[in-house]
Computed example of a mutant assay.
Amino acid sequence: MGVFWITGGGSGIGAALASHVASLGHELWLVARDEVRAGALRASFPEGRVVVADLAVPGALGEVLPAQGLPSRLDCLVHGAGVAQAGRIGEVGAQVWERTLAVNLVAAAELTRLLLPALRAARGQVVFMNSGAGVYAPPRLGAYAASKFGLKALAETLRAEEHEHGVRVTTVYPGETDTPMQVRLHEEFGLPYDPQAHMRPASVAAAVVMALGLPKDATMSDLMLRPGR
């Protein structure tokens, strides 16, 4: 069985992927922002290992996570956590930019750094859950799009640097998916929400599983997904 580390496992795509991994009996590591969320994750995934760390404070991860123990080998690291807040450039202050970049980009870079020895040991794979906003920056989502464009650069650099160590890197660009974030953004934009017009989180998780299942001599570097309806 493999060892999987997933951020954002409490809801949406991350939760769907964590459920799939757990159902196959893999060793599952999850990250919770605080003890309350950690309790909820432990209840949902009783066989999993839950560590407590606030991704909004990436500078503390290097101290907080090793103190709770890190795996010696890691087959897959999935960066599924993310935040988004709508607002025009002229309206959004530094606090929104700092939190968005911290959670969506800087924490991903720091967590990857901390887990690279384990990934190298297993010749594992890193999956970055990006967004359509990582390819095209829409109005009123400047901070979110900037973080996702940065995540794309992080993935490409990591792929080039870690090829010699056998670490594969995949970026997934899901289109509209039926997640709590998508519901909230529709509310902020004043748009009607139709779940049927969106992909299910389980469908995106299935695509990630497909990418992970490739033979070791191949890498799905980029995976673009769009609703089929």
Results as ranks from 00 to 15, higher is better:
Met224Leu: 14
Met224Val: 11
Val36Asn: 08
Gly93Lys: 04
Gly14Gln: 03
Pro195Gln: 08
Asp54Arg: 02
His186Arg: 08
Thr100Gln: 15
Ala43Cys: 05
Trp29Arg: 06
Ala206Val: 03
Val51Asp: 10
Arg73Leu: 09
Ala16Val: 01
Phe4Glu: 12
Pro215Ile: 10
Gln196Tyr: 12
Val126Glu: 09
Asp194Cys: 11
Val96Asn: 10
Val92Ser: 13
Ala67Leu: 13
Ala218Ile: 01
Ala197Lys: 13
Asp194Leu: 11
Ala86Ser: 13
Ser203Val: 01
Glu188Gln: 14
Gly62Ile: 11
Phe149Cys: 01
Pro201Arg: 08
Glu110Phe: 04
Ala107Leu: 04
Gly150Asn: 07
Arg88Ser: 15
Arg184Trp: 11
Glu110Ser: 07
Arg159Trp: 00
Val183Ala: 14
Lys148Ser: 10
Gly87Asn: 05
Gly142Val: 10
Leu223Thr: 06
Arg159Glu: 08
Val106Trp: 07
Glu162Ser: 08
Ala32Tyr: 02
Gly82Asp: 06
Glu187Asp: 09
Gly62Arg: 14
Glu27Thr: 14
Met210Lys: 02
Arg42Met: 12
Arg200Asn: 04
His20Ile: 01
Arg99Thr: 13
Gly213Ala: 13
Glu91Cys: 12
Gly213Trp: 05
Arg88Asp: 15
Trp29Thr: 04
Thr170Met: 00
Phe149Gln: 00
Ala81Asn: 09
Leu225Gly: 13
Gly14Thr: 02
Glu161Gln: 09
Glu63Gln: 14
Thr219Met: 05
Phe45Asn: 06
Glu91Thr: 13
Gly48Pro: 02
Arg33Tyr: 07
Arg123Asn: 04
Lys152Pro: 00
Ala38Arg: 07
Leu17Gln: 09
Pro138Ile: 09
Gly48Asp: 04
Ala102Phe: 07
Met129Lys: 00
Gly175His: 00
Ser221Thr: 08
Val127Pro: 05
Ala153Asn: 03
Thr219Phe: 03
Gly10Val: 01
Ala206Tyr: 04
Val126Leu: 15
Ala107Tyr: 05
Phe45Thr: 03
Ala86Arg: 12
Lys152Phe: 04
Met181Asn: 05
Glu161Ala: 09
Tyr193Gly: 03
Met1Cys: 05
Ala133Ser: 15
